[in-house]
Simulated scan of single mutants.
Amino acid sequence: MTKLGLPDTILACLFDLDGVITKTAVVHEAAWKETFDAFLRQRDGAGFRPFDAADYDQYVDGRPRADGVRTFLASRGIRLPEGGPDDPPDAPPDKITVQGLGNRKNALVLAKIRTGGVEAYDGTLRYIDAVRAAGLRTAVVSSSANCLDVLRAIHAEALFDVRVDGVVAVERGLPGKPHPDTFLAAARDLGVQASRAAVFEDALAGMDAGRSGHFGYVVGVDRVGQADALRAHGADTVVKDLAELENGA
């Protein structure tokens, strides 16, 4: 292992955004809860069962927005029309679509980000600096369509040689996590084989992507006390903060 806590064979590091680089995961979870609870309360009335943290971790975290809508609603036995990207976010329950519900969540998360700002994990930024100083290439891989705005807000755009986010995924027709395609695309863009790249993720879907993509090393970042689940989904190692890896942890 190197002093960065990675195998000597690793040439590139692929970082998730929400929950790994920035503290926006909690903002996303709050926006999802507000979105789904309002929909379910209108739809189910007295039988309403709220969206909770376990739902977020299992069905939504790390997935592209529309996939999160479909996957969570399927867990409740609900299917909605797909709709189109411009569908209104405020349609009633009998008119709402997958895309419309996703648009409602995105409007909420943007409002929360603008109101509360974006905060980065200092340990991650220091670790990325160390990775780049050691000559390794870096990419940010996120399902968020707001990735670039968030990176600019924390002045971190220049820390990455490659960005594969929700916008790029749509342009290239790449399926999101738990599929490995966005991570594989980032490795290709960096000119390295998956076996020579390390994945850094906090989401279970991201662990699945790292494992199925046969990456050289998968680091689980445990922000919410799910270390065992991260390992079960494919993490080679689990840390609470990337600063732990600076000394070869």
Rank of each mutant, 00 (worst) to 15 (best):
A46L: 10
A46M: 10
G47A: 08
F51M: 00
F51D: 00
A53R: 12
A54T: 13
D55E: 08
Y56M: 04
Y56R: 02
D57Y: 06
V60P: 01
V60T: 10
V60E: 01
P64G: 05
P64Y: 02
R65C: 04
V69P: 01
V69M: 06
V69S: 02
F72L: 13
S75H: 11
R76E: 12
R79D: 13
R79V: 15
L80M: 13
P81Y: 13
P81G: 10
P81Q: 10
E82Y: 08
E82H: 14
E82I: 09
G84C: 13
P85E: 15
P85G: 13
D86V: 12
P88D: 14
P88E: 14
P88L: 11
P89W: 11
D90P: 02
P92D: 14
P92C: 14
P92W: 13
P93N: 12
D94W: 14
K95F: 10
K95A: 15
I96C: 10
I96R: 04
T97G: 07
V98T: 13
V98D: 06
V98G: 05
Q99W: 06
G100K: 01
G100R: 01
L101H: 01
L101P: 06
G102W: 02
R104Q: 12
R104G: 05
K105G: 04
N106V: 07
N106G: 06
N106T: 15
N106E: 13
N106C: 03
L108W: 03
L108G: 05
L108K: 05
A111Q: 15
A111W: 07
A111L: 10
K112I: 11
K112E: 10
K112T: 09
K112V: 06
I113Y: 09
R114I: 03
T115H: 12
T115L: 07
G116K: 05
G116Q: 14
G117R: 05
V118P: 04
V118D: 07
V118Y: 05
E119I: 06
A120N: 07
Y121G: 12
D122P: 07
G123V: 10
T124P: 04
L125F: 03
R126W: 07
Y127K: 03
I128M: 01
I128K: 01
A130H: 08
R132Y: 06
A133M: 09
G135Q: 07
G135L: 14
R137F: 05
R137G: 04
T138S: 11
V140G: 01
V140Y: 00
V140N: 00
S142Y: 04
S143Y: 01
S143D: 09
S143V: 04
A145S: 12
N146H: 12
N146T: 08
N146I: 05
N146R: 06
C147P: 03
L148G: 09
D149I: 03
V150W: 02
L151Y: 01
R152Y: 09
R152V: 06
A156K: 00
E157V: 10
A158D: 07
L159E: 00
L159K: 09
L159I: 00
